[in-house]
Design a protein around this nucleic acid. Structure first.
Length: 445
DNA sequence: TGCCATT
């Protein structure tokens, strides 16, 4: 029999050709084994390269862990064996997120800092692809109490060299929290990214949040197979449901005969097709490259897209196909273009700096009357870091002059914004988005 | 509709 306080260990990095009988001798050296199971795929029966191991005695588990974990590499593996309490042993929250570390600090430095509060099972510094520290780490203790002690003593206790504020020590997100947060981020970005959904009224904003919440909750509870589908659905519902300050002027018309989702009105959708395409959701044929947009818009009088997109009979279908693209069954694959397309968490605070570098400043004309700086910024955030967004206002009437500036911190974002937003239809108007004239172009001599 | 960081 096993001790009542026995620990079930997870063993990772096992060569797939080793079965229970091969592993047994390796682990028996630390005590009598109660149970050893190699994890196999439920359907294919394939060896998963890891196992659960329970010793009769708790002490054996601890010994095995300290002797083997990360200490030895089994033949054919390129990472050392993992021996640690299985996740199912859940001994409360004991993993910490540590922020505001110095970029120079190594795993060892962090260990030294956290050692006094308990046994550290895991210490990882988060690094970028180039190996540079991101200034944060995960530290896992053997118990919740140890982790809590570390928080109590270390959080805010000191400021590391090069860090912008004092040390952050808190419980790390659980997996669930992490996925939820990610989805929130995405939902937020989707909301921002789709100018159709920009809400001006308090009611609209409220409803938008509620719908996204509902979708997220459904996704989180597993009632919806694909969280992105849920978000997409919320977005679509929302587009259909709200008349946004004149942005969506058309009445709701039931769809007819196409793959159009029920209840989506057809009129407003052409205008969302462009930003969706540019962000990788649906490939839209390139626009009038190098040609002044005004020509496209005003010589033929109407819509540039149908004329140049013969393959897209119904822009709504196009837009909806884009939605389905990422709402499709291949979640990870579908996830990728989204995370790539969106820039990480653009700050929504700036507003101090005016112009960005040459090639980063856009002049935007034909803004809706009701657009203020915030709406302008929201509309361009999906394309990069917006340094500033300014709508010009008539100083006598305080009315928008319907044009403004948006500055990015890099020319690529600016170009992406031009590609996506120039000619973008809002209500009866089409945005004109182009590089701001350089200063000296104005000078007479 | 009307054109480049304003008072």
């Amino acid at each position: 029999m096993k001790d009542h306080d026995a620990i079930k260990l997870f063993v990772g990095q096992i060569p797939r050709n080793l079965e229970e009988s091969d592993l047994k001798p390796l682990f028996e050296e630390f005590g009598k084994i109660y149970e050893l199971t190699v994890l196999k795929d439920r359907f294919t029966g394939m060896h998963k390269g890891c196992a659960f191991l329970t010793y009769c005695a708790r002490d054996s588990a601890l010994k095995a862990q300290s002797a083997l974990h990360e200490q030895k590499t089994l033949p054919g593996m390129n990472r050392p064996i993992q021996v640690k309490p299985a996740d199912s042993e859940g001994r409360g929250d004991r993993k910490l997120f540590v922020g505001m570390l110095g970029k120079q600090q190594s795993e060892d430095d962090v260990r030294r800092l956290f050692e006094p509060f308990g046994q550290i099972e895991e210490c990882t510094i988060l690094r970028g692809p180039d190996g540079a520290s991101k200034g944060c780490a995960f530290v896992k203790y053997g118990s919740h109490a140890e982790a809590q002690a570390a928080i109590n003593s270390l959080h805010g206790s000191q400021t590391m060299p090069g860090a912008s504020s004092s040390l952050v020590v808190k419980f790390a997100d659980t997996d669930k929290e992490r996925t939820l947060r990610r989805m929130h981020q995405m939902a937020g970005q989707l909301g921002i990214f789709n100018p159709m959904t920009i809400q001006f009224g308090a009611y609209g904003a409220y409803t938008q949040i509620m719908q996204q919440q509902a979708a997220l909750m459904a996704a989180a509870q597993g009632t919806c197979l694909n969280p992105m589908a849920a978000i997409a659905a919320a977005q679509m519902q929302q587009m259909a449901a709200f008349n946004v300050s004149g942005l969506v002027a058309a009445p709701m018309t039931p769809s007819s005969g196409t793959s159009t989702p029920p209840g989506i009105s057809t009129a407003p959708v052409p205008s969302i097709a462009t930003p969706i395409g540019v962000n990788g959701f649906s490939p839209l044929p390139p626009q009038t490259n190098g040609q002044p947009a005004s020509e496209t818009i005003y010589t033929n009088g109407i819509h540039p897209y149908p004329a140049q997109s013969p393959t897209v009979a119904d822009p709504l279908q196009q837009a909806y196909a884009g939605m389905q693209h990422y709402a499709g069954p291949a979640y990870p694959a579908a996830y990728a273009p989204i995370s790539q397309a969106f820039h990480q968490q653009a700050p929504i605070i700036p507003q101090q700096q005016r112009e960005g570098p040459e090639g980063c400043n856009l002049f935007i004309y034909h803004l809706p009357q009701e657009f203020g700086d915030a709406e302008l910024m929201q509309m361009f955030l999906p394309f990069g870091n917006v340094i500033s967004a300014k709508v010009f206002v008539d100083r006598a009437t305080n009315q928008s002059k319907c044009f403004g500036f948006v500055s990015f911190d890099n020319p690529t974002s600016a170009q992406a914004a031009i590609q996506a937003m120039n000619g973008f239809q809002i209500g009866m108007k089409r945005l004109k988005v182009q590089l701001k004239r350089p200063k000296d172009a104005n000078r007479p001599y």
